[in-house]
Design a protein around this nucleic acid. Structure first.
Lengths: 112, 112
DNA sequence: CGTTTATATAACAATCTGTTTATATAACTG
DNA sequence: CAGTTATATAAACAGATTGTTATATAAACG
């Protein structure tokens, strides 16, 4: 039961997207992830907690370090939801809906 | 220059996702979009404004009504950003990264 | 053991969000 | 024109978010 609210919300922050982009290159520890940002370590820890809560990353503990990586489940959930819109766009594009609407931008009397 | 912050943020609300899902079936007016929700009309108007500001929908004016439809630009932007994560996941899946990590859940002494 | 390193947690201020009610605008209707 | 319908805007407010500093935990280092 992935939480789409949490996932999209997590993705709405540029710092968190940057973290994910970094993780797309491979695993990284909290310190490594924090390094590029002008932000304190606790702030990054919180961002990671948000990402983890959203199911977008997972962490394991390896001694003192906590390496993070992308989590398939959350990303898949988001991706699948979006697939719906993607398909709808493709459909609407095929149909002449848009063309018709563009052709008569005026007109359009009441129907009810 | 689509604003990913705004787009993902807009997508993080369940009411707005439901609105988009409805629009995936085709154009709809504000009233039609508001109908399924236990929420006042101004609330829906705001949600639509958020979606429009995020580039996820467009509106045209047709007399008194303002029919909304999905906007390709914003949806594409979100989709493209996500494609990056999707690809990263696929890559990491092919590589034995995960397998290796799973194989030695303990161990892992300092490297530095 | 005491120190350092990696990370988490708590408390707090500032800002953002999603509602609501009340009101405005603007186009149809008769 | 007066009334109704479709939609937008403003003000107010509760609750969530994001950042900070200060502190805790816990493993590794010597």
């Amino acid at each position: 039961m992935p939480n789409l609210d949490a996932a999209f919300s997590a993705l709405s922050d540029p710092t968190r997207r940057a973290i994910l982009a970094r993780l797309a290159l491979g695993e990284a520890t909290v310190m490594e992830l924090a390094e590029p940002f002008a932000m304190t370590q606790p702030a990054i820890s919180r961002h990671l907690k948000v990402l983890e809560g959203a199911g977008l990353i997972t962490r394991r503990v390896e001694g003192t370090r906590h390496p993070c990586r992308l989590a398939k489940s959350g990303i898949d959930a988001v991706d699948q939801w979006l697939a719906m819109l993607r398909k709808a766009l493709a459909r609407n594009y095929d149909r002449l809906d848009q063309v018709l609407a563009e052709m008569k931008p005026k007109k359009g009397k009441k129907v009810r």
